[in-house]
């Protein structure tokens, strides 16, 4: 039966026709792309997909901007999309080539960072919070003080993901500032607190899912989906929503202007907007997607997961990050580099 379905799907794929067998180079966050999704895509279209990982928005942007990177699709976070667009790195999407474009859920159709969705389609969205192993620290996880001023139990055991905007904005919210603030007093507090906290961190690395599961990290500034995956492996892990404020993110798939495999890229974009396929993305990485109707296909455990369904009391503290002006970005990069070294 299964093979029959696959065969039918393959047949359907081939009758849609225009897609020649080819290649596609997807440049995406590490551990973020469902292997089953790619298998299904290849089975339906004959297009083989090569995935390359990156660990932060800046890494991806730098590599793409260096030119002739060879990638076709990239998955930047919302606040990075306007930067890509402004630099002319993205190709405008021809909606007539994306029959499923209407499947984007209404609230994600016309977003601030990409009005009208002419450059990107939703991949996944979620929040940045703090994952804590309760067997090490049993206090309240819902505060960003945990990484800015770690309690004794967590000193030397907490990881901070190396994602500039997420970490800095969490610290800015903690200091009472707003996203993209250029208020030097706030930023000075942010820098001083981060620099003072750094010695009590264990590491600044990604790959948090596995290290939280295995107990290598007792806590980490982390993304909600990754934390859910860790919790499935290790029930001691909980996800905290910092009450001082925490960033929400949406990563969207965008077509690079120097893509070599444009037809294949459109095929993929259209493919992931199919509700069933979008649900596969979520089932793997454990983040919500932005496709209407995908709920029906979502795994049962995600519908109630405390990492995915934000408790009402914390919902108001989360906010999407706008794209900051260059002057703010320069300040942030300076603080971030100082922190990293």
């Amino acid at each position: 039966m299964k093979t029959y379905c696959l065969a039918t799907a393959a047949l359907l794929g081939s009758t849609v026709g225009a897609y020649a067998e080819g290649e596609l180079n997807l440049y995406n966050w590490g551990n973020y792309t469902s292997p089953e999704l790619i298998e299904k895509f290849t089975a339906e279209t004959g297009i083989s997909v090569t995935i390359t990982d990156y660990d932060s928005n800046t890494t991806a942007l730098t590599k793409v901007e260096a030119g002739a990177s060879g990638y076709d699709l990239v998955v930047p976070s919302a606040n990075y999309i306007p930067i890509y667009v402004e630099k002319g790195l993205l190709a405008e999407l021809d909606h007539s080539r994306i029959p499923n474009i209407g499947n984007i859920a209404p609230e994600w159709q016309d977003v601030a960072w990409d009005p009208g969705r002419f450059y990107s389609v939703p991949w996944q969205w979620g929040s940045v919070g703090i994952a804590v192993n309760t067997s090490v620290y049993s206090g309240d996880p819902n505060t960003s003080e945990l990484f800015l001023n770690p309690p004794p139990e967590l000193i030397g055991k907490i990881n901070v993901v190396p994602e500039m905007t997420d970490v800095l904005n969490m610290a800015i919210f903690n200091a009472g500032g707003e996203a993209c603030t250029e208020d030097l007093e706030v930023l000075r507090t942010v820098r001083d607190r981060l620099m003072a906290a750094k010695p009590s961190w264990l590491s600044m690395d990604y790959g948090t899912t596995d290290k939280l599961s295995s107990g290598d990290y007792a806590a980490s500034v982390n993304w909600n989906g990754s934390t859910m995956r860790a919790r499935v492996n290790n029930p001691d892990v909980v996800y905290g929503y910092p009450v001082e404020g925490y960033p929400l993110f949406m990563d969207s798939v965008a077509l690079l202007s120097d893509a070599q495999n444009v037809d294949e890229a459109y095929a993929f974009i259209n493919f992931i907007l199919e509700p069933e396929n979008a649900a596969m993305i979520s089932a793997f990485a454990r983040y919500a997607n932005g496709v209407a109707g995908s709920d029906a296909f979502m795994p049962e455990d995600m519908k109630t997961a405390p990492e995915i369904v934000t408790p009402a009391e914390f919902a108001s503290a989360g906010q999407f990050l706008p794209t900051c002006p260059q002057s703010a970005t320069d300040l942030y990069t300076a603080i971030w580099t100082e922190l990293l070294k």
Binding site: S56, T58, T59, T62, P162, M164, T333, W336, T337, L340, K341
Partner: peptide, 8 residues
């Protein structure tokens, strides 16, 4: 770092 996140 300078060629990656530091952008310098």
């Amino acid at each position: 770092l300078q060629f990656g996140q530091g952008q310098n």
